[in-house]
Nucleic acid binder design. Structure first.
Lengths: 147, 147
DNA sequence: ATTTGTGCAAATCGTTTGCATCTGA
DNA sequence: TCAGATGCAAACGATTTGCACAAAT
């Protein structure tokens, strides 16, 4: 078992469980937040953008405004339920896997894929004077081999 | 000598030298491109954004439109004179150091700093089926220690 | 003369914001 | 009740684009 499967169903995803989880995180379990949390955490590890999440919400007949989508994604991130991954200049991705891991970024598809092995650095660099490390991000850019 | 000092003045920066360098790269040495190349490569390794480059150009009394700045930055990147670094969701940075190296990203300042040591991965991850690695990027996020 | 580059202004895209209205505890 | 959340539409900042004009070969 790798770091990737850290939270495989340690919470569940019934409305009640989600509600409890939000409350634990200090967030009011509103209609929208419960619905979005349901979408985000129902499946396993996901890399989702605001736009995709809104599409999924609409498909589930839970219309949520984009503003609320963004609010929610950021609140969830602050609460430690999501991890923000900035790798593409354009879009921002939110990773439902908050454990320590890194990513492949598929150029062209603009898709993120978890790196299934624990990759580390040969040597953690010493930060400049007066600075402390907050995170180490490794992104391995890949592209489809033109078959 | 580390990978950081790879091109320390292997080219020089007189207008003539810049002109030759651009031609070698297959780029017409226009007024604007020569001026921008001069600004970019005069000093050592830099991490520059389109906006900053334009400010510097104006300070040097070489007005260049933002559109041309962007065109030029991308052309230089394709020509291998610059390296694009996407680490911040917002701005895009262009690194005049095209050698293999990684970065600190100073949160708050939104500033990039070269990592002065050659940092590698303990293990280069195997890319998914049908994909090949195009680049490996390591970003160490840091923040000022609140003194 | 022909090709290529430049500047301007408008357009685009993802994201944020202001604010009136609604909701959950 | 009333702090906090939501939706809408307008605002935003970085980047791109369309197109007439200018410059390089």
């Amino acid at each position: 078992m790798t770091a990737l499967h850290h939270h495989s169903h340690s919470h569940g995803h019934t409305p009640e469980q989600i509600t409890r989880r939000l409350r634990r995180a200090g967030l009011r379990p509103t209609r929208q937040r419960v619905a979005l949390a349901g979408l985000l955490f129902k499946r396993g590890d996901r890399h989702i953008s605001a736009e995709i999440l809104q599409e999924e919400a609409q498909a589930m007949r839970v219309p949520v405004s984009l503003a609320t989508i963004y609010n929610t994604l950021h609140q969830f991130t602050e609460a430690g339920l999501l991890r923000e991954v900035a790798v593409d200049g354009a879009r921002t991705y939110f990773d439902t896997n908050v454990s320590d891991h890194h990513h492949f970024f598929v150029e062209g598809d603009n898709e993120l894929i978890d790196i299934p092995d624990a990759v580390g650095l040969t040597e953690v660099p010493t930060p400049p004077e007066g600075m402390e490390i907050t995170a180490v991000e490794v992104v391995v850019r890949v592209r489809r081999t033109d078959a």
